[in-house]
Design a protein around this nucleic acid. Structure first.
Lengths: 293, 293
DNA sequence: CACTATTTATAGCATCAAGCTATTAATTTA
DNA sequence: TAAATTAATAGCTTGATGCTATAAATAGTG
């Protein structure tokens, strides 16, 4: 007893005529006769009382009819819903982000929503090395905005834009007055840096080592906001992406540019390479890249 | 997208393994692979993320899974219900009756219900000539208890029992005192008889004509209860089936047996000859006939 | 009453989907 | 590195489902 048979039966019951039903179903009348006969065999009781002139539903037929129409409509619903899914994925777009995207992500989302108004967004903060790859592979996220440079077989990682790293220190700090600052100047200072595993930590350490210097690491933090809090209390200095201090900065802290080619990080958008991307996901990817083209 | 495919998919999703699912479905693993592939093609997006070691549901897969399990369970319900229908018909047994069955039908129903406790009864009073045949043909009734002698190609009509017709008259009526009464004695009396089309009318008129007599018809009625009401008022006399006056009779009326071979009617049980009879219907038929064997 | 039109059933044929086996490819485990 | 496991691919077979042609039944019509 499959959907097709039920569909055939319901159509005959609606038309109360095999030939009309066959026309509507775009099959021949004998095929339809056969199909109904088989259905009756399977059900075990006649469904239609028929002579050459009149077709009527039997008791069993009436019952099957009501049940079958219900089932068929639900089947149609299912098909329609899967059609939707094909376009929009699950209706949910899960994006793994880092903090510094705050200044541009709302804009991208806004233009995107004109095209896919029904999509529901989920923005997850994904920090640290392994978490990034896992979140993609385990279907936690569809897309990932990250500063991790991922080089894996199955993950595509496209650069979006570069972000400068800037020195941040307290207004009252001695270096705050100095015109131009170099890495070497920072060696003796209490330094605040990300914990092991973060790309930014690696970038900063590389910048130091390029100048044959080593920072005096006093604090290890996970979020740059934490670093800023420490700087506000003048407990140390730090180097963080410029986007964290581009906005209305409070007066107690000062930002300084340091000239070093290494003090720059690249922001990537990453996704599973060989996995099907729903058009909704694809579109968001394109929208994002266009934003930085 | 048919039921089978969905069933396959759900099984794979449950097992998270093609080979295990194939075993459970009693098909080969390649066949299953193929089936899922086709389903994915039809849906338009991948449902399962698979490498040789692990099978996981995609977003689309998760959605289809929940919808499909629902649909499948409903399909199973439908099958079970049709199985029920095969055994018990629609769960409703519609019997066309005439009034005089009152004295035995409850007994038959009682023993019958021990075997089919879920059957719901409907007792319709079916009067008159054409109504009897129509009620069978149009699926209004499954069985018919009738005194009509039906001789049609498509209707089987089995005699159940004979019923005597008796004279009924008012206590104060002159004939009430007489010992033995003959048809001839009734000619001048106000006679109450069924309207045209009823078998009993034909029976009575034949009894008269056998004796070369004609009744003086004053009233034509449709229900024998009406006739009794008229007799109670001494407005006339009537001849009706004995079962109508077998029960506690009120004192105002008197019954008299008339010796005439024609004053007897046969009660039949009738049903459509070439139509499928659900076992529940069949059983009731047997139960009824056994009652009078 | 014969003739036409209509409708379902039957018979026989064609084709394609859905199954199978055998094999390959990929990956984990020992 | 070998063995084991698992999914995918290739190629073949078969049966269900479709088709056409035709028969059978019946209602309507001149």
């Amino acid at each position: 007893m499959d959907i097709k048979q039920l569909h055939y039966f319901v159509t005959v019951a609606d038309q109360l005529s095999y030939s009309k039903a066959a026309q509507r179903l775009h099959i021949s009348q004998p095929s339809l006769s056969n199909a109904i006969k088989n259905l009756e065999l399977e059900v075990g009781s006649p469904l239609l009382e028929r002579n050459t002139r009149r077709v009527e539903l039997t008791d069993a037929g009436k019952i099957l009819y009501t049940k079958a129409t219900l089932l068929l409509s639900q089947m149609n619903m299912l098909k329609k819903e899967m059609e939707e899914v094909k376009l929009t994925g699950s209706g949910e777009l899960i994006i793994g982000i880092i903090e510094s995207v705050k200044h541009w992500i709302p804009k991208v989302i806004r233009t995107y929503q004109d095209r896919f108004p029904d999509i529901h967004f989920k923005l997850l903060e994904v920090l640290g090395g392994k978490a990034v790859k896992e979140s993609l592979r385990k279907y936690h996220t569809h897309l990932l905005i990250t500063n991790q440079c991922i080089e894996e077989e199955d993950i595509e990682s496209l650069p979006l834009y570069d972000e400068k790293l800037v020195l941040v220190l307290h207004r009252d700090h001695p270096l705050a007055q100095k015109e131009s600052i170099h890495i070497k100047d920072l060696e003796q200072e209490s330094f605040i840096i990300s914990t092991e595993g973060f790309q930014t930590r690696a970038d900063i350490l590389r910048a130091f080592s390029l100048e044959q210097a080593t920072p005096t690491i006093k604090f290890e933090i996970e979020r740059f906001e934490t670093a800023l809090t420490l700087v506000r209390e003048n407990l140390g200095i730090t180097i963080i992406p410029e986007n964290y201090v581009s906005e209305p900065m409070d007066a107690s802290i000062v930002r300084k540019t340091i000239h070093s080619p290494a003090l720059e990080r690249t922001i990537y958008v990453a996704y599973m390479k060989n996995r099907y991307l729903a058009p909704a996901v694809q579109s968001f990817l394109e929208e994002t890249r266009r934003n930085f083209a």
